[in-house]
């Protein structure tokens, strides 16, 4: 579930408010979106991918947790890690070009039962 909108990183672009399929965020007067409906979060991680400054943290749990703070998340390299893996962002190339599913399928065909 979404646990963090970093107000030190957020540039108030509103992308997360727009792209969240279950409308978890609301705009706020400060410009930094607020998590208005955490219960509606389906833990799909899409907001992290669309955040241009890695200001969001979605915990892998399907329920609210006592999440680590921003400093700890940044230090452990978690903030922005999924976006990096997908290869989105300036100077990166799409991870889809490295999709090795075809190698998995080939190996599966060699395995009896597939």
């Amino acid at each position: 579930m979404i646990e963090l909108v970093s107000n030190t990183r957020c540039i108030s672009c509103g992308q997360c408010v727009s792209v969240c399929p279950t409308r978890v965020f609301d705009e706020s007067p400060s410009g930094v979106p607020v998590i208005a409906r955490q219960d509606d979060c389906q833990t799909c991680f899409m907001c992290e991918l669309y955040c241009p400054v890695d200001a969001l943290y979605v915990s892998p749990h399907d329920h609210p947790i006592d999440a680590p703070g921003e400093t700890a998340l940044a230090e452990s390299g978690i903030l922005g890690s999924y976006r990096e893996q997908i290869g989105w962002g300036k100077g990166r190339s799409p991870g889809a070009a490295n999709d090795t599913s075809y190698l998995m399928f080939k190996a599966m065909q060699r395995t009896p039962g597939h």
Partner: peptide, 11 residues
């Protein structure tokens, strides 16, 4: 080129 899979975010 291999076209048997798609990554959802990119697609």
């Amino acid at each position: 080129s291999y076209r048997r899979s798609l990554q959802g975010p990119e697609y």
